[in-house]
Design a protein around this nucleic acid. Sequence first.
DNA 1: AAAAAAG
Length: 626
Amino acid sequence: MRTSVLRQAGLCRAAFAARHIQISSKSSAALLSQITRVAAVQSLPSASPPRFYSAEATAQTDNAGSDGLITRFADLASLGVHENVVRAITRGMGYENMTEVQSMTISPALKGKDIVAQAKTGTGKTLGFLVPVVQKIIAQEPELAYAPNRFGGKRARSDDIRAIIISPTRELAEQIGEEARKLVRGTGLIVQTAVGGTQKREMLYRTRQQGCHILVGTPGRLNDLLSDSGSGIDAPRLSTLVLDEADRMLEVGFDEELRQILQFLPDRKVLPRQTLLYSATIPKDVVGLARTYIDKNNFEFVQTVKADEVLTHDRIPQYIVPVKGFENIYPALLELVLKGIKESQTNPDALPFKAIVFLPTTAEVIVANQIFRRLKYNFRDIPRTWDIHSKLTQNARTRSANDFKDARTGILFSSDVTARGMDFPNVSHVIQCHTPPNREQYIHRLGRTGRANKPGQGWLIIPDIELQVARNKLPGLPIKRNDELQCATVDAADTGAAKHPHFEHIADAVSKLPHEAFKECYQSYLGGALQGVDRQKLVYALNDLSKFGWGLDQPPAVKPGIAAHLGRVQGLRVESREDRHRMGGPGHRRDLPGRGRRQSDDPFDNVLDRAQSLDRRPSRREQASF
DNA sequence: AAAAAAG
């Protein structure tokens, strides 16, 4: 039985220390300067100062701020929200109090304003945009507030879609669709989802059959359906467009696809529509892009985060574990997992152990899951594990996501496909291995824990060669160094020393992997997953991993094209014809261990000690905390 | 060769 995470009672009692920037604002806050300046010029001549809502200001007026802001869902009726919708929230979904972002966005959105909203992870942004989406459709066609019955009611069409919600991943689109269906239960509104990896024909059949008012989807499939004039899917009277994870949707790659989708939607100048942009992170450069999507004369930028406030939750401790080499990562991860399990068993206040482990490439996600499945034979306490990434079939992805949502305990090994928006209830640990691609992605990944005021903890496992890059990418976050994991500092190359037993357990699990897995892992790291890390150091680190972590005699050979693109790096083995033949041949067995032996004439030669740091010092005012 | 997203 899936329970929605957002147990919202109490959320809105948290201090209302939010900034509420009106279009008339002359705020000079750096983040907003661009957007607010334009708005200020074009709108009210008598600019009023930005309004700040503080805990003091709202303490006495529980239900309404000075702006008539309401904080209880039951009071939405006073803003004209239909009782069937209110009932779906208060009875069906079981929510009573609004979160800050809901309170501050729903009423202006109900008035028809475009919204750019930034609020921390796990604070209910989805419901925040769904309520105005639903109510607007009902306002246009009041009979849609009621489910059709034999006495009447309008039959929904597939070519009269009123709202489109776009998400960066398929699972997030499905999740939003589920929440939307809960919200419209009891009304006549129909929600459909359109994502890749699913049977397009089935979706089209269902949609033509049932109709659609609210379409939730990912860019590729939406584009596919809308560009196909024979699909029967159309939105000539579109009233609302929502970009969830807006900053991500405006990034290169998605932006072009978005532009195409917009081509198939009614021209805003002919048919004005409402646009809602929501995210936990809205970097400065994205604010400029957002401008092209919103009505400059009628919008609000709502931030429930103060100007200099950190975007992560104070109650979620964040730790970094610097580890010596790549080969230390799995032993350290195992140590951390066992420690977390023990904590959940001994500390009655701790959540059951439910972790997401983020890894930088799909190849590594697969390997990690294989390794931990094997480790379960030796460590009975390790819970069930899943993996999820784009190379799985959509069915497998959906199964992993749903199983992990429903699980009390478990470990989900994941690529960045689940980094944003996914609502896995009661995640106790978010563990990020290697340096995340950027600061925003770190914040979103961490946001998979600590949702709806729940506890949780965040961990980073970072090899020494990435440490400076990690500092550059993660300034201004309260990340504390943690030196408690014994496996972190073990020198896997030191044959003399007795290693921590976890190294042997990992070696056993690794020995069951096919050689192809190592090759794919090795190559995947060379493709820019660790942007900013010195290529030469990376190759040496991977060669150490091959030898001391995977027990290989020589590093996997890479395709000639990769070597050519990397240019002048030492220690790279390039694939020869024989290699390809051997690899494809039947019964190939890789040579086992030989761990710890170092031969001076092979490409493993570790010259790391001599390598000079090529990393530049950060020029930012803000420094990393570790 | 690197998350993701259309087949």
